[in-house]
């Protein structure tokens, strides 16, 4: 294998030094077999610039911490291998989210806010009986819930969404998918009308203009287009029947 010299153009920005405009800084290093951006960024920090900021946690595409724009495409840095990259790669933080420094963005706060707005928990009046066996559930339903629950909150669908880029209150594909997760769950006793009041509007599912960058960029393959369409149809039927109380 011929060793390649890789160039990375990485956005630098420190909120503590607002006088310094965000800019691209060039780094060079030699490619190694099996190298991922996780290895690259840590090497750069430890060997070239200890102030470089970025986020990793699980480094196995499970936790969703390392979403960023790799040559413009929103994806997880940990699962991006250098062998799939050109000689020169540009790394930018995900848009929409608050920039904490360099490649680090505050996805956690955004997702927490979205979770509150969509009331992302099972709504039920039933209390738990420790002595009773569990309520039965068809395994197909369990799988359907899991399909939506698989979202890892990395924010790639939000960063890549044109609407989310200009409308700060739009809950995006992640938010709509979250609602879908509870809609299919028989344990959640919310009515269609209650869901409609949360997502049957421009900040919810009707804010989606159908560009599907979310669906194209989801790094864990959640079927976002299907989820968006599912919630849109449900909400249209709820909207159709909606009556003022």
């Amino acid at each position: 294998m011929i060793e390649r010299e890789l160039t990375f153009r990485i956005m630098r920005y420190n909120p503590d030094e607002p006088e310094k405009k965000p800019h691209l800084q060039e780094f060079h290093l030699t490619e190694e077999p099996g190298m991922s951006l996780f290895v690259v960024l840590n090497k750069l920090r430890e060997e070239q610039d200890p102030t470089l900021r970025f986020d990793f946690v699980c480094r196995a595409s499970i936790c969703g911490s390392c979403g960023m724009l790799v040559n413009g495409r929103p994806t997880l840095a940990c699962k991006t291998l250098t062998k799939d990259l050109p000689d020169v790669t540009t790394l930018l933080p995900l848009p929409v989210f608050k920039l904490l420094g360099d490649l680090s963005v505050d996805t956690g706060v955004w997702f927490r806010d979205m979770s509150f707005r969509t009331e992302s928990w099972v709504h039920t009046d039933e209390t738990f009986d420790p002595d009773a066996p569990e309520k039965r559930m068809d395994n197909a339903v369990a799988l359907e819930i899991y399909e939506a629950e698989r979202c890892i909150e990395c924010g790639c669908c939000i960063g890549g969404c044109a609407t989310a880029n200009i409308k700060p209150d739009f809950i995006g594909a992640a938010g709509v998918n979250r609602v879908a997760r509870f809609m299919v769950d028989p344990r959640d006793k919310r009515t269609e009308r209650e869901y409609f009041e949360v997502v049957g509007n421009e900040d919810g599912v009707f804010g989606c203009i159908g560009l599907m960058a979310c669906d194209d960029n989801c790094p864990v393959g959640v079927p976002l287009r299907d989820q968006l369409a599912y919630v849109r149809r449900k909400m249209a039927s709820a909207g159709w029947r909606y009556q003022k109380v």
Partner: peptide, 13 residues
């Protein structure tokens, strides 16, 4: 944004 993310459907919009 459209220039950045290289996404055909976004351009089409």
């Amino acid at each position: 944004h459209a220039k950045l993310i290289h996404h055909a459907d976004t351009w089409s919009w």
